[in-house]
Design a binder for these strands. Structure first.
Length: 470
RNA sequence: GGCCCGUUCGUCUAGUGGUUAGGACUCAUGGUUUUCAUCCAUGCAACAGGGGUUCGAUCCCCCUACGGGCUGCCA
């Protein structure tokens, strides 16, 4: 398993799906762990649905995740002539044949056997036609598809995740490798491309498990080396159906916007369908690379759970340095804290990072320190401020105004005085002041908060709040 | 319909022919904390069903059910 070559092969018919990201991740982990190559191939042969803007979206998302690919991106559409050549080769060596059954004939036959409750099989009418007969039909201008001559017997392969898979070839039908317009089909193209790219391990979603025997028959018909296969279980939504927008965001970009770091996403995704064989759950990218094993990949599909994602994110934040957290905030919002002193921003982040679950939560909470004036929530204000708490707040403002030194001890003394003056516990003092200063009933320690906001800002806000009760 | 794959707490997952079936997330309760969050403690909660094999099956075999995939001149 030295220097494997793997690939991620999305079709550009949409953004990078969270399931696709997981597939890419496992490919990447395997490549990195074994000093191999991780390649990217864009399967853009569906002209109807493929869009170049999706290619950009997908590559942007992969880059953001840090799943960098080696070598140039392969565009499947560029391999057309190669595909034609391989179809011709199969026609030539007798592993494929021209089938002159027309689409309508096929549809009717399919319908008929459905009504008779029979298993539909593509008739092999043209499978062993003589050269002359074929030529005759060609001369008549009859259109044809190219079908693979599925041999008798069975096809077996060993999947790194699912073990031995065996199917009877008779269940496969002589499937089409080239359409009547000459374009080759997926199961054919994928085998040719993977072979041309020297892919050693095909790692992909298990929705391809049933296609694999067909692809193996293509390899054999062409005399190509078969890769090793590893299929990954699907990611489902909370109702156990394929993960879709109804359940949660499916676009990787959306998770970025929600303030999850790439590392967090990769960490969570890795745990979906893989177990690290230990109690460890929080992983850096490098730790994932070291730990990943196919034999610990689950066979059953996994349900995506945003609650656990949030927990993973929070765990990462507590381990993250203030500096790294700031970089992540800037990545998310380049304008963050514009014009403010770097050291001041650093103190802010230090104060709120460990009580946040996502990067965007930090950014949001940090706004407290930026704005001159606050918007107070009317309901919260009327719930919080009684006559007593207004008077406490008033006294606090006065004490602040009189305060000469700006340090923690001074503030603590002010609080002590307020407590004995009004004969109340600290909660009665802290709560109204916190809300006056921040507009929200939770957050960093009150003394840290006051010190960092600074005397001027505190006084401004206290005056503003008190003006509501004049 | 045919073929392939799967099924352990709500979720992610350990696990073994004999276990009090373990951990994590969530949730609930209590504690710590100047609020919130963290943290700590406790609790709730699972072997899909039926047949075998066996002294004994969650574990091995078969069937059923359920879920997913493929079955296309989509990828």
């Amino acid at each position: 398993m030295k220097n494997p070559r793997v690939r991620f092969a999305p079709s550009p018919t949409g953004y990078l799906h969270i399931g696709g990201a997981r597939t890419a991740l496992f490919n990447w982990l395997f490549a990195k762990q074994n000093k191999g190559q991780f390649l990217l191939r864009i399967e853009d042969t569906d002209l109807e649905r493929s869009k170049t803007e999706y290619i950009d979206q997908i590559t942007d998302a992969l880059s953001w995740l840090g799943l960098n690919w080696d070598e140039d991106i392969v565009l499947q559409s560029k391999n057309k002539s190669r595909h034609q050549e391989m179809v011709a080769k199969m026609l030539d060596n007798g592993t494929a044949y021209r089938c002159f059954l027309q689409k309508e004939e096929l549809d009717n036959l399919r319908l008929a056997s459905e009504q008779k409750k029979e298993v539909f099989r593509v008739p092999q009418t043209y499978r062993d036609l003589s050269e002359n007969k074929v030529q005759e039909l060609l001369n008549q201008g009859k259109s044809f598809t190219v079908r693979l001559k599925v041999p008798k017997g069975e096809t077996e392969f060993t999947d790194l995740v699912y073990g031995t898979i065996k199917v009877q070839n008779k269940d496969l039908d002589d499937f089409i490798i080239a359409r009547s317009d000459g374009s080759p089909t997926y199961n054919f193209v994928v085998a040719v491309d993977d072979s041309d790219m020297n892919i050693s391990h095909v790692v992909r979603g298990d929705d391809h498990l049933a296609n694999t025997p067909k692809q193996i028959l293509v390899y054999r018909a062409l005399g190509l080396n078969e890769p090793i296969f590893a299929h990954l279980p699907m990611i489902l939504g909370s109702d156990k159906k394929r993960l879709s927008k109804r359940h949660a965001a499916t676009n990787v970009q959306e998770y970025k916007d929600k303030g999850f770091t790439a590392t967090v996403i990769l960490n969570y995704l890795s745990l979906l369908g893989w177990n690290p064989d230990s109690d460890k759950e929080i992983f850096s990218n490098n730790e994932l690379i070291e730990s990943f094993q196919f034999d610990q990949v689950q066979k059953k599909s996994a349900v995506f759970d945003e609650k656990k994602l949030l927990w993973i994110s929070q765990q990462h934040l507590t381990e993250m340095s203030v500096r790294d957290a700031m970089n992540e905030i800037y990545k998310l919002n380049p304008d963050w804290g514009d014009g403010l002193d770097w050291n001041y921003l650093k103190e802010i982040v230090k104060l709120i990072k460990d009580r946040s679950k996502t990067i965007s939560e930090i950014a949001e909470m940090s706004e407290l320190f930026f704005q001159e004036k606050l918007e107070y929530d009317q309901e919260l204000i009327s719930k919080t401020f009684t006559q007593e708490s207004v008077s406490i707040t008033e006294d606090f403002k006065n004490a602040l105004e009189a305060c000469q030194e700006w340090n923690r001890k001074e503030i603590e003394t002010i609080f002590d005085n307020l407590m004995s003056q009004h004969d109340v516990q600290i909660g009665k003092v802290m709560k109204p002041i916190r809300i006056a200063l921040t507009g929200i009933p939770y957050g960093p320690g009150i003394f840290d908060l006051i010190l960092l906001l600074g005397k001027e800002m505190c006084l401004k806000r206290l005056r503003k709040l008190l003006s509501l009760f004049d």
